[in-house]
């Protein structure tokens, strides 16, 4: 009986692995490596990768710059409504991307909530790279903030208190104690947010449209090229798979580093005040 259970588990696991991996393997088998490379250097693919790289990089800077203080507050302070705020920040995580797209239009579109105000400033967001960046920030930042809240929350409060009682200013406590101790978690969140942002599709196509060299990111180019040049679509898909694998590998390497920094923390914290 016990044997039967184990065989059933193994068979199910085998089927699950095959189902999850087969499509990714098939992507690489569909087009020969030579065609893959020449498709990647084709005009539509290069344009799309450049747009993706630019918008993802800008969005990532915004996510880190704005997300870190938010996560530090939510992770290290206790106040009424904290849980509700965390839930609100995490909402885009479970929101269908298409909903994010129409929500962004409803807020920042020319007929949106802030449409008239933006118009007065001479700003029109839809169909611009700024719209792509906003879409990425909106859908990807929760991946970073969520991890960062957990990472800051896991920092031993007594270390922060010790630094403060030893005379370190709040900014110094943050920069010299909290940030290094949370670095592993922040890195993991940062990688996941970057990967999610790079793959953003639904919100982008609705809010920013799709124009080569301007708003057409790699995922949008896959959609656009599928019925025009299948090789380009597959090549971009294969490249994004490789990026995803790299991100996962980076994330799985991070915990080891966290353990390393944590173990040295007790000796590190007092030195921060010297």
């Amino acid at each position: 009986m016990k044997r039967l259970f184990e065989v059933a588990c193994a068979v199910t696991a085998g089927l699950a692995f095959a189902f999850l991996l087969l499509p990714l393997v098939a992507l690489f088998l569909r087009v020969s490596p030579g065609a893959l490379v020449s498709a990647l250097v084709s005009e539509p693919a290069r344009e799309a990768l450049l747009v993706s790289l630019e918008t993802s990089a800008i969005a990532h800077v915004i996510i880190l710059a704005a997300g870190t203080p938010v996560a530090y507050l939510l992770g290290t302070r206790d106040f009424r409504g904290r849980r509700a705020l965390i839930a609100a920040v995490e909402l885009p995580l479970v929101l269908p991307p298409a909903v994010a797209g129409i929500a962004l239009l409803a807020a920042f579109g020319s007929r949106g909530l802030l449409g008239d105000e933006l118009d007065l400033l001479g700003v029109s967001l839809p169909f611009t790279q700024a719209a792509v960046v906003l879409a990425i920030v909106f859908v990807a930042s929760p991946f970073y903030i969520r991890q960062a809240v957990a990472a800051f929350g896991a920092v031993d409060r007594t270390l922060l208190d010790a630094a403060r009682t030893l005379g370190a200013a709040p900014g110094r406590v943050f920069a010299r104690v909290a940030l290094p101790l949370a670095a592993g978690g922040l890195g993991a969140g940062s990688s996941l947010a970057f990967a999610r942002g790079l793959g953003e599709f639904g919100a982008t196509i609705i809010f920013a449209g799709s124009f080569p060299g301007e708003t057409r990111t790699a995922p949008l180019a896959i959609y656009a090229e599928l019925d025009r040049d299948f090789d380009v679509a597959v090549a971009l898909g294969a490249l994004l798979v490789l990026v995803s694998v790299a991100v996962l590998a980076a994330v799985s390497l991070l915990p080891a580093w966290t353990r390393f920094t944590s173990s040295s923390a007790t000796t590190f914290a007092p030195s921060a005040s010297t």
Partner: peptide
């Protein structure tokens, strides 16, 4: 400013006033 994947998507972007 945008190339849409079917004609209904074109109409939608115009109807929205975007």
């Amino acid at each position: 400013v945008s190339e849409e994947q079917d004609v209904k998507a074109v109409v939608a972007k115009v109807a929205l006033g975007e």
